[in-house]
Design a protein around this nucleic acid. Structure first.
Lengths: 196, 196
DNA sequence: AAACTTTACGAACGGTCGTGCTACCTTCGG
DNA sequence: CCGAAGGTAGCACGACCGTTCGTAAAGTTT
C-alpha cells in the first residue's frame, strides 16, 4: 500500500512500536524498555520514536494501555460472552490460563511482570499498573458474586475471587520461571475443585 | 575500633554493601542495582565496590545469596523448629506471611520480585533465583507430604503445597501493589480453611 | 625490616541512556 | 498552488552505566 496517507499520520508507526514494546516489556520489564533499542530493532530513528511519545514515561504508559487492550481481547471479552455466574467464572479462569500458557506475551502475563516490577515504586506507572490489575480483580470478584447470588456456588465471593486469582498467577509464575506445563495442570485441578 | 585487621579484610564492607543491595533490589530489581548508586549511598568509591565483586553479575549473584540467608533465617529456620507435619506447615505459612507483611525487604518478598524480573531471561542469575525459589517450594512440598503421611491432613500433598504457596505470594503481590493489609487477611482465611 | 597481599581510591575509557534542536519531507486545508 | 501541520531523521548534549588501570595505604608474612 504505497502512498497511504494514514501511515504518515503516525498511528501505524505508533502501533508498530507498541506491539514490540509490550513484548520487550513482558520479558525485560518496563524499565528494560529503551528508546534506542526499540528504534534499532524496528529500523527507526531514536528521535523519531521519542517524538511519538514525548517521554519515556509516556511510552511506558502507552505500553501498559496497549497490553491492557491485548489482555482484554484475550481474557475479558471472551468471558463476557459466556452466561453470568459459574459458567463465566470457569471461562475467566480457563481463558486466563490459556492466555498465560500460550505466551500471548513472550514473558508470560504482562501484568504479573510489570506489577512485580513497579509494586513498591510510586508514580504514574505504578498507578496505571495497579489500576489495570485492580480492574481485572474486580471483574473476577463481581463474577464470583454473581455465581453465589445466582445459587451456582456456596462460598464467600471475595475469598473465592482471591483464591482463583492467586492460583492463576502462581501457575504463570512457576511455569515461566521453571518451564514446563505442570504448574498449569496443578492450577486447573485446584480451580476445578473450587468450582465444582 | 581503629586498627581492626578484620575490617580491612573487606568482609565487613562486603556485608555492608550486600545489606544495602538486597534492599535496593527488592524495590528496583536486580537490574536496578548499580555500582555507582551503591557506592554513593554508602560513601564508597565505585571502583572499590566493583573490586569487591568483580562484575555486576557477581554482585547480583551475591545479592541473591545474601537475600536467601535473610529469608531462611526469618522463614525456614523458625519453621524447622516446629514439630513436623501440620504444625510445621502452619508455621511456614504464618512466618512467611509475617516475613512479607513486616517488610523484611522494603519491596516485599525479595524472591517474588526478582523471580518475576528474571523468569523469562536466561543466564546464571535466572538459575540462582529459580534454585532458591524451588528450594523453598520443595520445603513446603515435603512438609505437606509429612502432614499427610502422618495423618494430620487428607489431601494431595503436591496440590496442597501449590495452593498454599500461591496464596502467600498473591497476598504479597496485592498488599505491596495496593497497600493495606486486607490481602493478608484473605490469605490467612484461605490457608486456615485448607489446614483445618 | 623487607616483601607481598589486600583494600580502597581517583581518573578515565567506551558505550548507552533520555532528551533537546534543527531540518527535511510528505500530506492536507484553503 | 501554496503554506501550515506534523511525522521522521540527524546530530549533539549531559548523565550514568560497567569496566579497567595505576596507585596509595594498611595488614600480613617472612
Amino acid at each position: 500500500m504505497p502512498g497511504d496517507g494514514r501511515l504518515a499520520r503516525g498511528d501505524a508507526t505508533r502501533r508498530l512500536v507498541l506491539r514490540r514494546a509490550v513484548d520487550v516489556a513482558s520479558v525485560d520489564g518496563l524499565d528494560g524498555l529503551s528508546l534506542g533499542r526499540l528504534a534499532t530493532e524496528l529500523e527507526l530513528s531514536k528521535s523519531g520514536v521519542f517524538a511519538l511519545f514525548g517521554s519515556k514515561e509516556e511510552l511506558q504508559l502507552a505500553t501498559i494501555e496497549a497490553a491492557w487492550e491485548i489482555f482484554r481481547s484475550h481474557v475479558v471479552t471472551p468471558a463476557r460472552e459466556v452466561a453470568p455466574g459459574l459458567p463465566r467464572l470457569r471461562a475467566i479462569c480457563e481463558s486466563w490460563l490459556e492466555y498465560s500458557e500460550r505466551r500471548i506475551f513472550p514473558g508470560g502475563c504482562f501484568f504479573f511482570n510489570v506489577g512485580a516490577e513497579f509494586d513498591a515504586r510510586p508514580g504514574r506507572v505504578h498507578d496505571a499498573v495497579a489500576a489495570a490489575s485492580g480492574s481485572f480483580a474486580a471483574f473476577i470478584r463481581e463474577t464470583c458474586l454473581d455465581a453465589v447470588s445466582l445459587g451456582h456456588l456456596d462460598a464467600d465471593p471475595e475469598l473465592l475471587a482471591f483464591e482463583l486469582h492467586a492460583l492463576g498467577r502462581a501457575a504463570n509464575a512457576d511455569a515461566v520461571l521453571n518451564g514446563g506445563t505442570q504448574a498449569y495442570a496443578l492450577a486447573r485441578r485446584a480451580i476445578g475443585a473450587r468450582l465444582s
